[in-house]
Design a protein around this nucleic acid. Structure first.
Lengths: 143, 143
DNA sequence: GTTACAATGAAACACAGTATCATTTTGCTT
DNA sequence: AAGCAAAATGATACTGTGTTTCATTGTAAC
C-alpha cells in the first residue's frame, strides 16, 4: 500500500484511495480486466468508487505509462500493469487473455536483419488460438 | 465486377449490389477503412446503401474469411481484404494504417525453436510508430 | 487549520455497433 | 417470363462502452 502511493506521487499524481485501489488491483491480477470488471470488483470493498473515476484513472495511468491498454477485438479495452512490451495470447475458446513470456516473440523489430523505414515505438503481438486448458478439455463448446 | 459476384456466390452468399460495392471497395483500397468510412464513400455512388447493411455485410464477410477485421485501438474496427496473416503498421502521427510486407515478421509462431503449449490459430502483429512520410516531415504536430 | 486546486461521483451525453421488422430483392421453379 | 419462398435491405430503436459536465469532496501545501 505504501509502495503504490509512492509510485503515484513520483508520477506527479495526487494520491487517492480510488487510484491506489485500481493500481493495486491491476498489480495483483493476471486476468487483464476491462474497466467494467475493475469497477465491479472494487465497488465491493470500496463503496466510494464510480465507473467514471475508473475510466479517468485508467486514462491517467495509461498516459503516464503505469498501465498498458490492450485491445484484442472485444467491445472493450483491457488493462495490464505489466508495461514492458510483451506478447499476449487470446483463447478463442474460453476468452482468457494471458501474458506470454517468450524471448523469441519479444522485441521483434530490434532483431530484423534489414531495418524498416518505419520507426517503431512499440510493438504488439497477439496470438489467437486455444489455450492449454481448452486443448485438454477438447470441448465441442469451442467449436 | 463479374469476378466479385463469382466470389460471393462461391461463398454461398446472395449477390447484391451492396455486397459487391463493399467488397470491391475493400479490394481497391490500401487505407483499411472502418465501417463508417466505407458507408460514406459508397453512399455517393450507391444511394441505396445503409450503414446497417455495411455492418451486416462486413460481418458476413468476416465470418466467411473474405475480409479481416483489424483493431488498432481506435474507437472502431478497420477492415482489410487481404485475409492472409500479415503484420500492420500504425503511424501514431498521421494515423495511417498500412500492410507490412516482411517475411521476418510473418508466421512468427511457426518459426519458434520450442513450441508453445498454446495452439495458435492466427497471429496479429501491430507496430506502432512513425511512418516514413511523418519522419521526413519532422512535424511538431506529432508531439 | 486554512486555502487553492485537483479528484470524485452522478448524470447527461456521444458514438460504435446490433436488433427488429416491414418492404424489397434475389434466384429458383415452373 | 412470371410466381414464389427465402433472404437481404434500410429505417429506426436500442445496447453498451466510454466521455463530458459540473457541483461537491478530498488532497496537500502553507
Amino acid at each position: 500500500m505504501k509502495e503504490t502511493a509512492q509510485v503515484l506521487r513520483e508520477k506527479g499524481l495526487k494520491v487517492t484511495p480510488q487510484r491506489i485501489a485500481v493500481y493495486n488491483m491491476l498489480l495483483h491480477t493476471q486476468s487483464h480486466p476491462n474497466a467494467e470488471t475493475i469497477y465491479r470488483t472494487l465497488e465491493v470493498t470500496n463503496p466510494t468508487m464510480s465507473l467514471a473515476t475508473v475510466y479517468k484513472t485508467l486514462d491517467y495511468f495509461k498516459q503516464l505509462g503505469l498501465v498498458q491498454e490492450l485491445n484484442v477485438g472485444e467491445g472493450s479495452a483491457r488493462y495490464d500493469a505489466v508495461v514492458r512490451c510483451h506478447p499476449h495470447t487470446v483463447c478463442t475458446c474460453c476468452g482468457s487473455v494471458s501474458d506470454l513470456e517468450n524471448d523469441e516473440l519479444t522485441n521483434l523489430h530490434q532483431k530484423l536483419s534489414t531495418p524498416l523505414d518505419f520507426q517503431v515505438e512499440c510493438e504488439q503481438l497477439i496470438l489467437y488460438g486455444k489455450c492449454a486448458k481448452c486443448q485438454m478439455a477438447e470441448q465441442e463448446a469451442c467449436e
